[in-house]
Amino acid sequence: MSFLVGHNMTGGYGGADILHDCTIGVEKGEIAVIVGPNGAGKSTAMKATFGMLNLRQGSVMFDGEDITHLKPEERVVKGMGFVPQTHNVFTSMTVEENLEMGAFIREDDISGTMAQVFDLFPILKEKRHQPAGELSGGQRQQVAVGRALMTRPKVLLLDEPTAGVSPIVMDELFDRIIEIARQGIAILMVEQNAKQALNIADKGYVLVQGANRFTDTGEALMANPEVRKAFLGG
């Protein structure tokens, strides 16, 4: 049983199912990546594990507990952090205020965690008094990830963290994601840059039309000729 697993999930928004018997999961300290064509249900599958849509069938288990019926905010308290793809910073607030907002569920001293985030993303320390709305796209993503880390999550869900950033910034973000996983945090990530994401993945899920098409290690999926041809550009 994985540390976090959405098992045999079927559901969607309104009457139409987007997910069809879909299973995704991740272990502590592991990076699991969800890839597939546009409209495959990648973000929906991850959001389902965070409680953002009701499942008609299936379950979500987290750290040995059934959390299928918990609201997203209750899952945050349990130790889940979620970084949406867009609208993921408070633009009028400073970088430091954004990070403080991430610690809303905590009643202890947050300065140690803030220092860890600044160690991970040095540019944020430099710009901590600057409004987040003035930052570049890549820097905003760092703020969003940093804010999620302020809750001290056991698992971090990232919805296309490198969308719209340059290749250099993408490589930097992936390096930081690897560092976060090394701290024992489980990372479940949706990525359009499938080849680069599978390169750093311990586990990969290829979804097509809301269902699992391939599940394997990142390395095995990269080496699979069918996956390469259909999803990785040959």
Rank of each mutant, 00 (worst) to 15 (best):
T94G: 13
V95E: 13
E96C: 05
N98Y: 05
M101G: 07
M101T: 12
G102V: 01
A103T: 03
A103V: 02
A103L: 05
F104C: 12
I105H: 08
R106A: 10
R106Q: 13
E107R: 12
E107K: 14
D108G: 10
S111C: 04
G112N: 10
T113A: 12
M114T: 13
A115P: 06
V117S: 12
D119I: 00
D119R: 05
L120I: 05
L120F: 08
F121Q: 11
F121H: 09
F121Y: 14
P122C: 01
I123V: 15
I123Q: 14
I123A: 15
L124V: 08
E126K: 12
K127Q: 15
K127Y: 11
R128E: 14
Q130C: 10
P131T: 03
P131F: 02
P131E: 11
A132P: 13
A132M: 09
A132I: 05
G133E: 09
G133R: 00
E134P: 00
L135P: 12
S136G: 11
G137V: 06
G137Q: 05
G137I: 04
Q139H: 02
R140I: 04
R140N: 10
Q141Y: 06
Q141G: 08
Q142N: 06
G146M: 02
R147L: 11
A148C: 09
L149I: 01
L149G: 07
R152W: 01
P153F: 03
V155Y: 04
V155H: 05
L157V: 09
L157Q: 06
L158A: 11
L158H: 06
D159M: 03
P161S: 07
T162M: 10
A163S: 14
G164P: 12
G164K: 01
V165Q: 05
P167T: 02
I168D: 12
V169W: 06
M170C: 13
D171T: 05
D171H: 06
E172V: 00
E172I: 00
E172S: 12
L173N: 10
F174K: 02
F174T: 04
I178M: 08
I178D: 14
E179Y: 00
E179G: 06
I180H: 07
A181R: 05
A181Q: 05
R182W: 00
Q183K: 13
I185M: 11
A186W: 01
E191W: 03
E191A: 11
Q192H: 04
A194C: 09
A194V: 03
A194L: 07
Q196A: 15
A197M: 08
A197L: 07
L198D: 11
L198H: 07
L198M: 12
N199W: 00
I200N: 11
Y205F: 15
Y205N: 09
L207M: 09
V208E: 15
Q209A: 15
Q209S: 15
Q209I: 00
G210C: 07
G210D: 09
G210Y: 02
A211D: 04
A211Y: 01
N212Y: 07
R213C: 07
R213S: 13
T215I: 14
T215E: 15
T217G: 14
